[in-house]
Design a protein around this nucleic acid. Structure first.
Lengths: 351, 351
DNA sequence: CTGTTAGCGCGTTCAC
DNA sequence: GTGAACGCGCTAACAG
């Protein structure tokens, strides 16, 4: 008994259409796919039969099985959609991805894996998978994908065997920003980091949390900052937003405060600037703030953040291109992108 | 010849695993799916054989064919991803959708149809489809979906036969905002609308364009506004963004200007406010502005837009729930959501 | 140009 | 609890 279709109007099949048209199934198949030599009259007859039977063309599911391809690329983002989409970088990246995948006839299957350990991932009929900022939690799922011969591309993820990585110089770039601050005379620098755990818990940045964390990007950026300021402490935000930045900023700026803040995203950085504003602390005179991403935020004026501009769309495009190549049997080279320090008016020499 | 896999390591199949374990394929299948009576020892043997052969479990593509379900729901958005994601409402809606679909084990396949007439749509192995703010352009694709027995849910779309609609009171709500303006003494009101054509052409709002337009939401909102201000003219923006709002605002506010503007999104409204600011026109003293959506925009301060708050997440949730029901064979009722006029400080009595 | 023959990899009856 | 057989709907080979 089929749940959901109590009355089967006996949906027509290609074979039925072929019979109706008086041709063989394979001929009918060719008539639909367009490829292959089919006489105009035969094709017309097939199409006519299809119309008569109300047949909508070959079933994509059967095609996938037969062809071994579904035309779908899974995109796994660690966060819930609302979190993931809040960050303009993710969107830019997806956009780049879609730019490459769309023309190749591939669709984007959004898979979020909130702790499910990649269950959906191994059940989805995908031709390839793109991991976005995923932790190593997905190990098992990735193993299954490999067993199936499904190529995996990872953007900013802990290196994994047989996973093509599209990387960003998170550590180096942050170190560059840190040196910029040091050159300006800053020594007391605090960090505002992206979430360290899937739970998105707010709080102080402790060594325990850091050690237990699986958030690759956040950890790399911390590592970079500490290459220059080994003792830099800070707070962990619950997400990448101006609001979270303000919360972190208020926390950081009360009492004896740092002279500079390295925030792990522009949204966070802007939040810190706002918090400072709120507390009557002048930026950049009394507090320098740097961000990461290089997104233009609506309403950020009059601030022009000093930030690390990352090529988000390019990252997505590279991932998409890699997927296309992998599906074509080519083995692309891993890519590494670099971010550029853009000086704005939120950093200045230490007072 | 298989492109892309020159060396076939002969990926194992369920049958192979079964043979290795010394059981029949059907038994092995049961061992994997968990359903059905299989002795613990047999299952262990099967799993062991799978490990030995490096078998990752049943192939999702074959499963979809056999089961007639792929576990994938297609989401069609008219715009390019970058456009679609720029609007917070779309994201909220997707989020609600994912909320309902995820737990039901359904993935979201993003399909954008930039004029391709729904080609990808009819080729994708989806169990159901959600149309988001789509024009009637997709008629043909929808017909194919029906032929396949694939349920279709549409959010804010022109009513179509056999398509479950999740609606918003675009016209009524806008009329309510318009009446609010009229009550404040405004008579000269201009519109800033969302794009009317897939081309996203900017320009004056003319009757020709309106008549030719397939943008349901935009047209409905115009209709609502004109219920109160029958002669209201205005401009068409190229998208929903602050930047576009500013462009529209500059256009509208030079020369003899209206005393109030009805923008079709909060982003547009904020842009108009900015444009006014730029031109030295005080809001709300010299110009009243209303928006639509009810999104809190980062950096909108000190303005609190007067706007129509729509339940975007709920819309998505309702669509998701409807999809789940439809797939379960239940026929859900169409839903209609209402927006609420929220008074902010961007509207005031006419000077 | 068209028909015939085989499966793709799996799940699901039924019997046993 | 397990096995045998069949078919999901289509397409890739080859043969005519």
């Amino acid at each position: 008994m089929d749940a959901g279709a109590s009355d089967r109007p006996a949906r027509p099949t290609l074979a039925a259409v072929a019979a109706r048209a008086g041709v063989s199934p394979s001929t009918a198949s060719l008539a639909f796919s367009g490829a292959g030599p089919v006489s105009e009259s035969t094709r017309a007859r097939v199409l006519e039969a299809a119309r008569a039977l109300d047949y909508g063309g070959p079933d994509p599911r059967a095609q996938s099985l037969r062809r071994g391809r579904s035309g779908i690329v899974g995109v796994v983002m660690e966060d819930r959609l609302r979190e993931a989409f809040r960050d303009p970088m993710n969107i830019a990246m997806l956009d780049g991805l879609a730019d490459e995948l769309g023309p190749a006839g591939l669709g984007l299957l959004l898979l979020t894996e909130p702790g499910s350990g990649g269950a959906g991932l191994s059940l989805a009929p995908v031709d390839a998978v793109v991991l976005v900022g995923c932790s190593t939690q997905l190990d098992k799922a990735v193993v299954v994908l490999h067993q199936r011969g499904i190529p995996v591309v990872a953007i900013e993820a802990e290196p994994m065997a047989d996973v093509l990585s599209i990387d960003l110089d998170n550590a180096d770039a942050t170190a560059r920003a840190a040196r910029h601050l040091r050159d300006l005379g800053h020594a007391d620098v605090a960090l505002v980091t992206l979430p360290l755990e899937p739970s998105h818990a707010r709080g102080a940045l402790t060594e325990e949390r850091l050690a237990a964390s699986t958030a690759f990007t956040a950890k790399e950026r911390i590592r970079g900052a500490r290459q220059v300021f080994p003792d830099a402490g800070g707070v962990v935000a619950a997400g990448s937003s101006v609001e979270e930045g303000m919360i972190a900023g208020r926390e950081l700026l009360r009492g004896s405060r740092p002279t500079a803040v390295i925030a792990q995203s522009d949204l966070l950085a802007l939040g810190v600037v706002r918090a400072a504003e709120e507390l009557g602390i002048r930026v950049p005179e009394e507090l320098s703030v740097v961000g990461f991403d290089g997104v233009r935020i609506e309403g950020a004026a009059p601030w022009e953040l000093t930030t690390l501009v990352q090529p988000a769309v390019e990252k997505g495009r590279a991932a998409g291109a890699a997927v296309v190549e992998l599906l074509a049997g080519v083995t692309p080279e891993p890519r590494a992108f670099t971010s550029e320090l853009r000086l704005g008016n939120t950093t200045a020499r230490r007072a």
